[in-house]
Design a protein around this nucleic acid. Structure first.
Lengths: 224, 224
DNA sequence: TCAATAAATTAGCCTTACCTAAAAATATTT
DNA sequence: AAATATTTTTAGGTAAGGCTAATTTATTGA
């Protein structure tokens, strides 16, 4: 049976995406209010839309259990997230946008509909596993790798990690990164943590040791 | 004075684009009915929208003169056309879509908003001058080259031209093109036209002479 | 347990961008 | 110039997807 993914409206897609994300990072009940907060709109509007999504069999909704995506809804949500993250990689790597600019544009691009688009983009980009914020890109079949990213300051002494993103996108931080020659994919070895002020001694690209502050180490997202 | 290009709705952008195109290929009066035909909607709806566009100073409308774009409206229309054609190049060259698939996806992509997007895409693609249908890509400043494209059968004997697109996107035609090793940018020299059946003798990439039918020569778009 | 508070829902409105049907204005023919 | 046809415009309506305000239902905690 071919479960054709019918085209959703932009608004429906945003609801599915938000519901997916809310369901991810906590096993809590997903309420209309939570969705309204995430979408920056009104709970009353959410209730309307939830009815529509239930009718379309994209979600299940019982006051007791809150909102849950159906398999169909989850599939669509994951495809949107897949497209979002792939486009982010494209914008950063090919169009030279910066980390803090890609998200907003990807919010628009994720809604472009075409059956082959995600897979072709994926191939063109060389099947990236993570987006510029270090979040995993769902596979064509809708599987998503675990998120291993942490902040540099939590890496074990002696371990080498790879930069996947930043938590701070201020230009002063980004300029400092540039000065240290750190970008996405850069390998950093954590040499030692200094207990006194929690600063961290690292080696960038196996180069000479450098000391960075706790603030810095807290702002850099890495994969171990 | 910075004439900020305010964001238009998708619908407004489509009106501006259609009005631009209608104004291009004929010096005729652009009427609500003509616009309705082009957009596949109702003249009554068009009249509504024309009022809105007049209010926004994107068009001028007098029953006597019909609709005309203001400078502001023209600027926006050209930017949308620029994005459309750049995305078409991207889809064809980078994502390996075929000539007949790119238009529909570009119809969506042309509405992605970001101040730097068109220019960055342009640079990434190597500043292409024409899209896969042989239509000129407006420059960043909103200038558009003339359209020199014609069909192969109208090329002068002895002249060499370059393939810019196809008029027929049937798979039988596309397969035949593949067999003849003809793609976008391929150089073809028109050796001789046969009066009897209007077939045409050509040399592809300065290779051996081949004879193609009038139907074929009418279906291939080229630049002289 | 029962008030107090918070969340969910309903009811009624708004805007956008369409629609149809009818009326008004223009064009075209004869 | 009148009659006919065509366009344009007006009037009133619809579906999406928001909104506020009021009501109902749950939750909490005293």
């Amino acid at each position: 049976m071919t479960t054709a993914i019918h085209i959703q409206t932009l608004s429906e897609e945003n609801y599915l995406k938000v519901i997916y994300h809310l369901g991810k990072d906590a096993k809590v009940k997903i309420s209309p209010t939570a969705i309204a907060d995430a979408l920056n709109n009104n709970p009353a509007s959410v209730v309307d839309m939830l009815k529509k999504l239930v009718d379309k069999k994209l979600i299940q909704y019982e006051k007791s259990k809150g909102v849950r995506l159906t398999e169909k809804g989850k599939k669509i949500a994951l495809l949107i997230i897949r497209k979002h993250r792939l486009w982010e990689v494209f914008l950063l790597e090919k169009l030279e946008y910066s980390w803090d600019e890609v998200h907003e544009i990807a919010e628009q691009l994720e809604h472009i509909h075409n059956p082959q688009l995600a897979d072709r983009l994926d191939k063109f980009l060389g099947f990236p596993q993570y987006d510029p914020h270090g979040d995993p890109i769902p596979s064509a079949s809708g599987e998503m790798a675990d998120i291993y990213k942490t902040i540099l300051s939590e890496v074990t002494e002696g371990k080498t990690c790879q930069v996947v993103g930043v938590k701070d996108t201020s230009s002063s931080f980004l300029q400092y990164l540039k000065k240290l020659d750190i970008g996405i994919g850069t390998k950093i070895t954590l040499i030692e943590k200094i207990p006194f002020d929690n600063s961290v001694i690292v080696s960038v690209k196996n180069g000479p040791n450098t000391t960075v502050s706790k603030l810095f180490a807290d702002s850099l997202l890495v994969h171990e």
